[in-house]
Amino acid sequence: MTTTAQQPGVGTPRRQVQSQAFWRRILKRPEAGALGGAVLVFLFFYIIAPPFRQVPAFTTVLYQASTIGIPAVAVAMLMIGGEFDLSAGVAVTTSSLAAAIFATKVVDSIWIGVAFALVFSLAVGALNGYLLIRTRLHSFLVTLGTFLMLQGLNIAITKLITGNVATGDISQMAGFSLGQAIFASNFTFGGVQISIAIVYWFLFAALATWVLLRTKVGNWIFAVGGQGDSARAVGVPVRRVKIGLFMLVGFSCWFLAMHLLFAYDTVQSGAGIGNELLYIAAAVVGGCLLTGGYGSAVGSALGAFIFGMTTEGVIYADWDPDWFQFFVGAMLLLATVVNSWIRERAMRGK
């Protein structure tokens, strides 16, 4: 045959398109809505709450945001991979309890306690992932189960071992000051006290972004959440990716747990309930799709930042702190609507 495939007269413009439509590309990013939201919330409290305008207030906001943002980064990656983790909130408490109880009642060493908690948290994550794959249930159900189990265990085991609902003070143990320096220290920068948790939060968000957008594993995470069967068909190890993501959430819970343990010396066994929804909300406000395959780590950080501003803003504005919950809910609804609008535009290729 002499006729070859007709080549349409248009050449592929390729990379020029990228620079040409730079600002459009920004608008198409999953976190675009969260960025706009963060600016609006900031302006809102800046206007109505004068104490909010000071720099120390801003670092308090960032600190508050970091305690949501550290797990939220991992939760966002998990959601991009198409799964939920409802156990993340209590898993933080479980992890700090495990460290404190193991360190004080079992081995009398802070570092072994910390290591034990890490192993335990990773195991909880792996268990979530394994159950999900074995049972083929929705992760909502699986992690609702582990959530309730952990919530019960937290209080029951603590009571059983310490005879109390809180663990003993660990601040007198050897190695505490080093642990505190690593996980919960403050430093002064430009005349303001800044918690190291904020630095870790930024670091994790940056790392997660790099992994998601620049590595093979990141590509797999998007694919596994977007269309698991297709991903499997081209050789992506879907199960390993999912279990790995649950373990990553476990790691982030452990990290926050160690921060809280070394910052407050003791752990309340009933703490953490409800925070899992804040992590998910932060990820969703940041552009994660409930159905998976879409979202960003930076978005989750912006979501956490919005919630941090709201928590503190409500206080600075002298309102009842209960307004916070109302705001979280309203923001979640608004963000979901805005994000889906942005995504539709992106999908139409506009």
Partner: peptide
Amino acid sequence: TLALVPLLPVWRNFFLGSE
């Protein structure tokens, strides 16, 4: 079914699993 992931960019789909 084509083994493509709809939300993923064209080039990422092209090399998915063989990046």
